[in-house]
């Protein structure tokens, strides 16, 4: 909590002289700095107000407005909001149509998370413990490089790879494995999601593995544990918070996505986000869209509580 802001907007000013400026007759800014220095509470208030106000007004207030809207309805004749309290939007959520869509979204998010964890662990392990300095830098660049390209461009690239007669099918045929046609299916979605969010898993897992002291692994070996036993009893438990932290990203990012289902999904690929989008943009049914938007929020609250129990926030 530095007081750069409180020092009259003079970052890199001279804190030492300010500190002694109490009785020195000087410019207004010096007096102000002195006053602020004497009153720690004022300094803290001034420093914290902008981010807190931002958080309260922009973030929480908009969430509250959305939550309130979810209890309203829309007049079918005029399409205007009806401000009477009703649970009908939430009741509608529990019909099979929407339960299937919610189930598909959560299932895909879980599957992508597991896939990414399995892929990321050995990769991060190599990066953190085996690779040379130079190798590690190269690998880090390789992991982060895709993030420089636009999300849409990367998804489109996968359409080209996966579609009928695309790169994947062509390669399989050349290898004599027969044609594969998984474009526009949920399998395609799973592949694309796993690819897109993989960096968000690798980085926290790497951070967790890197923090494990070599001495623990040596001790494990000295005590007669084989590699497998060391992995299971030492590495995995210590890396778990990193995996869970990464899973927060992969899970929540998949849960809220609607562009990948739209671009690479097939006939059975609606996500929660797609239904929210069509209710907002096409139907103008804000209350139902709001009710539906509560679902991922509730899911994430439980997910984050679980993650906290597993110590995920220690490695963030």
């Amino acid at each position: 909590m530095t007081s750069t802001v409180a020092q009259g907007g003079r970052p890199g000013g001279e804190p030492a002289s300010s500190r002694h400026a109490g009785g020195v007759p000087g410019g207004g800014s010096a007096r102000l700095a002195a006053a602020l220095w004497r009153r720690a509470w004022l300094r803290a208030t001034l420093t914290l107000t902008p981010p807190l106000a931002w958080f309260l007004v922009i973030y929480l207030a908009s969430l509250v407005v959305m939550l309130v809207t979810a209890f309203w309805s829309v007049n079918p004749f005029t399409n205007t909001l009806v401000h009477t309290w009703t649970l009908s939007n939430f009741r509608q959520l529990f019909t099979s149509t929407y339960l299937i869509i919610i189930g598909r979204t959560v299932g895909m998010a879980a599957l992508v998370t597991v896939t990414d964890a399995v892929l990321a662990f050995p990769f991060a392990y190599y990066m953190a413990r085996l690779a040379s300095n130079r190798g590690r830098q190269l690998l880090f660049t390789a992991v982060l490089l895709p993030l420089w390209a636009s999300y849409i461009a990367r998804v489109y690239a996968w359409i080209v790879i996966l579609q009928k007669g695309g790169t994947l099918s062509w390669s399989f045929q050349k290898l004599g494995l027969g044609a594969v046609n998984i474009g526009y299916t949920n399998t395609a979605m799973w592949l694309v999601f796993s690819y897109i969010w993989l960096p968000f898993m690798i980085v926290p897992v790497y951070a967790a593995l890197e923090r494990i002291p070599d001495s623990l692994l040596e001790a494990s070996g000295d005590l007669g544990a084989h590699n497998w036993r060391t992995l299971r009893s030492v590495l995995l438990p210590l890396a778990l918070p990193g995996v869970v932290a990464g899973s927060i990203f992969t899970f929540s990012l998949t849960l809220g996505d609607f562009i990948t289902p739209l671009l690479v999904g097939g006939a059975n690929s609606n996500f929660i986000g797609n239904v929210i989008y069509s209710n907002l943009g096409t139907a103008g049914n804000l209350p139902f869209a709001a009710a539906l938007a509560v679902v991922p929020i509730v899911i994430m609250v439980f997910y984050l509580l679980g993650a906290r129990l597993l110590g995920a926030f220690e490695s963030l």
Binding site: F77, N79, A267, V275, N279, A283
Partner: peptide, 19 residues
């Protein structure tokens, strides 16, 4: 007559169809 199906219901029916 007010017995036609308004657009909102078209949207929810479409969600059911494409599910």
């Amino acid at each position: 007559k007010n017995d036609c199906v308004p657009f909102q219901q078209w949207v929810s029916a479409w969600t059911q169809i494409t599910g």
